[in-house]
Design a protein around this nucleic acid. Sequence first.
DNA 1: CTGTGGCCACAACGAACAGTTGTACTCGTA
DNA 2: TACGAGTACAACTGTTCGTTGTGGCCACAG
Lengths: 316, 316
Amino acid sequence: MDLNTVRTFVAAADAGQFQEAAADLAVTQQAVSKRIAALERNLGVRLFTRTPRGAELTIDGQAFLPHARELLRVAERAVASVRTGSRPLRVDVIASRSAQSGLMRGFHRAHPEIELDVVMLFDIETAVAAIRSGAIDVSFRAVGMPGRPLPEDIESVQVLDEALQLLTGPAHELAHARSVTLTQLAAHRIWMPGIVSGTEWAAYYDDLVAEFGLTIEATGPNFGSDALLDTIADTPALATFMGEHTRLVWPADHGLRRIPVTDPTPVYPHSLLWHHDNPHPALATLRAHLAAAAASHDAAETWAPDWATPRSASRP
Amino acid sequence: MDLNTVRTFVAAADAGQFQEAAADLAVTQQAVSKRIAALERNLGVRLFTRTPRGAELTIDGQAFLPHARELLRVAERAVASVRTGSRPLRVDVIASRSAQSGLMRGFHRAHPEIELDVVMLFDIETAVAAIRSGAIDVSFRAVGMPGRPLPEDIESVQVLDEALQLLTGPAHELAHARSVTLTQLAAHRIWMPGIVSGTEWAAYYDDLVAEFGLTIEATGPNFGSDALLDTIADTPALATFMGEHTRLVWPADHGLRRIPVTDPTPVYPHSLLWHHDNPHPALATLRAHLAAAAASHDAAETWAPDWATPRSASRP
DNA sequence: CTGTGGCCACAACGAACAGTTGTACTCGTA
DNA sequence: TACGAGTACAACTGTTCGTTGTGGCCACAG
């Protein structure tokens, strides 16, 4: 099916005749007739009843018409999503189920008229480059990684401290613990495949490991979130970290358990990054929304890397 | 833009390489390469970065991908809307802003997973023929019109009595009346262009006119609801009838006034019609929903044609 | 350093498609 | 009965699309 054909159908339906639709589309009446005939052949139903003074929609045509209009609307938005200048706000998040996605969902609920496109870049370096080149408008990242100061033209504001939880299967030794301390975790295997050194998230976990003597295994390729959860659920000796706001999509939860970590609670710091010259009108709205939504976390007994927090982190 | 091209883009994005996408689509790798290149040329952006072991999405490609998927979903639904067998429930209503549309909106809110297609047929005769031929599943109509008994295979149930109101412009003599009686209205001009004799709605107003000695002018062609409202708003001597649940779409309401009609209140009877053999699974759901939503109108001092009401109508 | 495998792009060719012009048909109307 | 308005069919043509064949690039192994 061709969108030009759909456009022709809508034009003919609006005009009530092929001739006028042809004039609107700057083609001949015969071309419209052939396009409609081809569409009818493809769909297997008659869309118009031809009359001596025009063409009017059949019942099938009436039913098809709103879908055709919707198709053109969606196509319009699709093209707009890659149009330079006045395109939707383009947001980089770490993962589709991360807390950042939750923030964006909240923003979308508050401002449904603002068009958004969400992408997932590799790390903060890629994100900063994309922001500076204009490829994206904003990014949620942990900033302050040692040796990687933000360029002058990038602004940032911390928007969310997300507590990490331990995720275990039902047979794990800690499966029924109400909470666990970071020190206790030193005795357990933590598995986080897919960590790539040099990224800001790797730096976060490097600091966490160094500070509390944890064992984090990053072995094995990352087969995706599903495979990870599958293994965690089936392996009693393995556990992993997961943000408190991360949404698990898992059939009947598979017996997975989330266990709060305390004394201190490790928190992953999410900051919003943007170019100080970015003129996108939705950017100001997003910043205002996040500023209003933030400021609700108690900083008692939490841990984050030194480089990640403007305020001094509490230590055990 | 061609949907085949979009499908190719999605396949390539999912596969991560053109070769595998080509195999999935049963074309050659070169064809995929050309399609993607054409799409990129049309959009004016690069969608993939070609690497020696595949192709991965650019940021623009990542932003475009969900729109492409949505496009395919909508196209799928569009095709399904005219597919014989297991297509969306097809509903005939009198007008897009009528109370019937309100009922269907309520049904859609209660059952958002049920696909609906709304069409507007000419009169009950057309609707019954469409129901019997299977072209539509259900229709909202006033049944019982003299000389037009429902065929044996059509079932119906009354679902809504909609009170009629008088619609006037701000300069109309009755513009500030809190209500008006049917008897009073005999002295005023009621204008309802587009009434076609032989239809069930014409029969309704014929009976109303005959019973209360009203003057309803049906002169002039029907230029649509907007033109009607425009004229009503600007002409002090004209008024028209409008269902209490009819939604007016009018910039700042233009000073239009709705005045309740009493002693008695004329009500337009909406019945649901369907073929007793119709196997569509959504039909039973709709009937149950309407049965639950109905049964909330007080029959005190209302009027409807004899033929339209099973129970005897109250008379002045 | 070189051979090899995997993958993408370019070129040339043939088939299919889409659009144009010209013409015939139908129906309502003067 | 002729005419006007509108659509469908036929023949022709230019373009597009997909195929085969080929070359280039990069990673990896020997």
